[in-house]
Amino acid sequence: IEEVKKIVSEIQSKQLTRITINGNTYQVNSPEELVEYVRKVFS
């Protein structure tokens, strides 16, 4: 979970619009959307 928080804060600070998780690239339009992807991947 700490690793996830680190990734999320990194993305928020860079305002990235794409994230790659487990080889899948997602278009991310908002931090909320990012959190949803993270929940799916780590749930």
Results as ranks from 00 to 15, higher is better:
34 L>K: 00
8 V>D: 01
25 T>E: 08
27 Q>P: 01
6 K>V: 09
3 E>Y: 15
22 N>F: 12
6 K>Y: 09
15 Q>N: 09
34 L>V: 02
21 I>F: 09
28 V>S: 15
13 S>D: 12
22 N>K: 08
33 E>C: 09
11 I>V: 03
16 L>D: 00
3 E>P: 05
38 V>W: 04
22 N>M: 11
18 R>M: 12
37 Y>R: 09
41 V>M: 14
17 T>V: 09
20 T>D: 03
6 K>S: 09
30 S>M: 04
8 V>K: 02
21 I>Q: 00
17 T>Y: 08
1 I>E: 14
30 S>Y: 05
14 K>H: 07
14 K>W: 12
39 R>N: 07
29 N>T: 08
41 V>P: 00
27 Q>V: 14
30 S>W: 06
16 L>Q: 03
40 K>D: 05
42 F>G: 00
21 I>S: 01
4 V>A: 09
4 V>R: 04
29 N>W: 09
18 R>W: 11
19 I>C: 05
28 V>A: 15
24 N>F: 15
2 E>G: 08
7 I>G: 02
12 Q>V: 13
18 R>V: 11
36 E>R: 10
15 Q>I: 06
21 I>R: 01
35 V>P: 01
40 K>V: 05
5 K>G: 11
19 I>F: 04
24 N>M: 14
13 S>E: 12
32 E>G: 06
16 L>M: 06
5 K>A: 14
38 V>F: 05
2 E>Q: 08
13 S>N: 10
5 K>E: 15
29 N>G: 15
19 I>W: 06
20 T>N: 05
28 V>R: 15
5 K>P: 04
8 V>N: 01
17 T>G: 01
22 N>T: 02
14 K>M: 12
43 S>A: 13
36 E>K: 07
20 T>E: 06
37 Y>G: 01
20 T>I: 08
37 Y>S: 04
31 P>L: 07
31 P>R: 01
29 N>M: 09
17 T>K: 06
25 T>L: 10
21 I>Y: 04
13 S>W: 08
16 L>W: 05
41 V>K: 06
36 E>N: 06
3 E>H: 11
26 Y>W: 14
34 L>I: 01
4 V>M: 15
43 S>F: 13
14 K>L: 11
9 S>P: 02
17 T>L: 08
6 K>I: 08
29 N>Y: 11
16 L>C: 13
1 I>W: 14
39 R>K: 12
2 E>V: 11
7 I>Y: 10
42 F>P: 00
28 V>N: 11
28 V>Y: 14
13 S>G: 07
11 I>A: 02
38 V>E: 00
31 P>F: 11
11 I>P: 01
23 G>W: 11
14 K>Y: 07
36 E>S: 06
26 Y>C: 07
24 N>K: 14
42 F>W: 05
27 Q>D: 08
39 R>E: 07
31 P>M: 10
10 E>N: 06
27 Q>N: 08
8 V>G: 01
24 N>S: 10
7 I>M: 08
38 V>K: 00
12 Q>A: 06
37 Y>A: 09
14 K>S: 08
41 V>N: 06
33 E>L: 12
3 E>A: 13
9 S>R: 13
34 L>N: 00
4 V>E: 08
37 Y>P: 00
12 Q>E: 09
19 I>V: 07
23 G>F: 05
1 I>R: 10
10 E>F: 12
38 V>L: 10
11 I>G: 02
16 L>T: 02
5 K>W: 14
3 E>V: 12
15 Q>M: 10
5 K>N: 14
28 V>Q: 15
17 T>P: 02
34 L>C: 05
28 V>F: 15
39 R>D: 02
26 Y>V: 12
7 I>V: 07
3 E>C: 15
43 S>Q: 12
43 S>H: 09
40 K>I: 10
35 V>E: 07
26 Y>S: 01
15 Q>T: 04
37 Y>Q: 08
12 Q>C: 14
15 Q>V: 04
29 N>F: 09
25 T>D: 05
35 V>N: 01
40 K>A: 10
6 K>N: 09
32 E>D: 09
30 S>H: 05
30 S>L: 06
14 K>G: 08
23 G>T: 02
5 K>L: 14
40 K>P: 00
43 S>W: 11
28 V>P: 00
23 G>P: 15
4 V>Q: 07
1 I>G: 11
14 K>Q: 09
20 T>G: 01
1 I>Q: 12
12 Q>W: 14
11 I>K: 01
5 K>T: 12
37 Y>F: 14
10 E>S: 05
37 Y>N: 02
32 E>H: 06
27 Q>I: 13
33 E>A: 07
28 V>W: 11
11 I>C: 03
7 I>H: 03
6 K>M: 10
10 E>D: 08
28 V>T: 15
26 Y>I: 14
6 K>P: 03
1 I>P: 12
11 I>W: 03
41 V>W: 13
13 S>C: 10
34 L>A: 02
39 R>W: 14
39 R>C: 13
40 K>L: 12
34 L>P: 00
32 E>S: 07
22 N>S: 05
2 E>N: 09
18 R>H: 07
27 Q>E: 12
31 P>A: 05
5 K>Q: 14
18 R>L: 08
3 E>T: 12
42 F>C: 12
4 V>G: 03
32 E>R: 05
15 Q>S: 10
2 E>K: 07
10 E>P: 02
43 S>D: 10
16 L>I: 04
38 V>C: 09
13 S>V: 09
31 P>V: 13
21 I>N: 00
8 V>Q: 03
11 I>Y: 02
43 S>P: 04
5 K>I: 12
29 N>L: 14
1 I>N: 12
12 Q>L: 15
6 K>F: 11
19 I>E: 00
3 E>D: 12
19 I>S: 00
14 K>R: 10
14 K>A: 05
17 T>A: 04
21 I>L: 10
16 L>Y: 04
8 V>M: 09
30 S>N: 06
5 K>H: 13
20 T>W: 06
15 Q>G: 13
34 L>T: 00
35 V>W: 08
10 E>G: 03
22 N>A: 08
37 Y>H: 07
21 I>W: 05
30 S>V: 05
